[in-house]
Design a protein around this nucleic acid. Sequence first.
DNA 1: ATCGCCAGTGATATCGATAACAATCGCCTG
DNA 2: CAGGCGATTGTTATCGATATCACTGGCGAT
Lengths: 332, 332
Amino acid sequence: MAEVAARAGVSTMTVSRALKRDGAVSEETRRRILAAVEELGYVLDLSAGALSSKRTGFVAVLVPSINNSNFADTARGITEVIEDQGLQVLLGATDYDIEKEEHLVQTMLTRRPDGIIVTDGRHTPRARRMLQAAGIPVVEIWDLPAEPIDHVVGFSNAEASRALVRRLYQKGYRKIGFIGGASRRDSRGADRRLGYLRAIEELGLPVGRTIAFGDPPISMEQGGQAIVHLIEQWPDVDAAVCVSDLSAFGAIMECHRRGWAVPGRIGIAGFGDFEVSRWAWPRITTVAVNCRTIGLEAGRILLGALDDVQRKRTPMPATLIVPFEVIEREST
Amino acid sequence: MAEVAARAGVSTMTVSRALKRDGAVSEETRRRILAAVEELGYVLDLSAGALSSKRTGFVAVLVPSINNSNFADTARGITEVIEDQGLQVLLGATDYDIEKEEHLVQTMLTRRPDGIIVTDGRHTPRARRMLQAAGIPVVEIWDLPAEPIDHVVGFSNAEASRALVRRLYQKGYRKIGFIGGASRRDSRGADRRLGYLRAIEELGLPVGRTIAFGDPPISMEQGGQAIVHLIEQWPDVDAAVCVSDLSAFGAIMECHRRGWAVPGRIGIAGFGDFEVSRWAWPRITTVAVNCRTIGLEAGRILLGALDDVQRKRTPMPATLIVPFEVIEREST
DNA sequence: ATCGCCAGTGATATCGATAACAATCGCCTG
DNA sequence: CAGGCGATTGTTATCGATATCACTGGCGAT
């Protein structure tokens, strides 16, 4: 930067200002500086700037998996909003594991992000403590935690699942099974099962028709295996609610393969409104949440909180509940 | 860190050493320091460490899209390898746009990563210049650039596509069409088309049966629309090669919907061996490359280059060609 | 007994930018 | 015309760690 400054005949401070968005520098000077930057091929070093300004321009984002288009959409939404403000996402994947989340939180805090967005409201006590002590805005997304750390953008997975079951009931289904993961690691999956159970009970339907299969994320393959188990174990089952669209898709394809008509023999519903559900044949009944919106809103709330901090206002923790929608398609 | 040092009765330098992996500190001292760290809830500030050590511990990774499980797998592979060495991935998505890539390269360099991995061998001249001038190891992946910048881990998309077409020919298909994106933005997609054209020509098959549809990434929806166009335009077509599995899937489902048997009426093949292709019904013929391996190898090569730099050896640019495999399944 | 080496530790300078405040200049207001 | 204000630029201190070199004490080899 000193070289650029020398070449442009100004001080480094002026160069620094010229390279910021809000820098108060005269047009003439800025032009000279930018020319010098270009000629020298100079690239600003933010890691130095971060140290003195105490703002790194990073927003840490933790998702269970980037290999899941729902979370990928959310991550994109966040990125979109915050990069407009010159911030950058530091992405991490927890693999649905709160121990790994704890470790990632620590790693991320080591980079001193200006804010952090975590998926889920479940954390290890130590992770929780670190998040609270970090002194930066925190947004928990994709869930409605009982005790939010700070801000929240999410919805009740249990309610959504319950609404789906009730819709199936209206449609005439009475022997409804559930296909989900075998571990509690995926807390959103566990909530969906909970909502299913609640609905079944409320409606007075036969209980117990639950297949637990494999570790999250439940794959297409596991969906296919699970539907076979479900039908073998309870031959009178007339519908299956799957913990995600991917398992629902696997289940439907397995039914095709075995000549079981969907929805003729059994209705099958998923969760998440993945692309595959919109274009599969039959199209898959599911619960849609706007994943990108979750990301956009989480990003906006974070930006708002950062703005509050900068203006030395006390930020007010916000909770934003995003809507979900049961979408009935051809598979039920 | 000064507080921790005071509490442990040592200098900050010793604390710093105790918190590194290779730190030469006596067991007794380390224990005292870690205890102090725990009691004070101290979290190391890497953004400061980066400044003095001139190593940020970042590896920048640019992929066309994180919402594509092939690239997500690659990104995971990279992450896996490098986080073992205490490095962290800085992920960016170019949206299949080399202008956006240029911008991202600049943004990333601003963070002074220790190395950078970019998808594709096509770059704007400025991006290319910046990459070369950065003075850090560069790995280009998922392609075999004519003029590599530095290291390469990839395969020839054209060759792979050509092999697929030849396999279809062996199987008896003679009127083979191609479904791909309408723009040249996706250079791997363009290469696949090229390979298709080359094969068609070599085999003396009827040419021209190419449907170009939409901007990358070509979606399931576009695959469904394109197959209709293809069949309407050339009713005698007996097979379709799609630029990716997603479009192949969309095409197959559209055929189901219209009562066109796959592969009875038309055989359909994809590219990429996505999960959906393994579990769809019919299972989809495709070209498989081990995406995770691309990531793992790219990570390893990068680590090797970083090691070379540290030991002041001159790193030798490496090119690693990963194998692809044509997998014949039920859809052809 | 002396020397040299090594493990463990500390003192100091430094990484490259920006915050905070100061200085300068021109122009407007009363 | 004095005072003051806003726009522009510079000076200096500082952010929080680590590189580098220096120092100490113990121990084995000669």
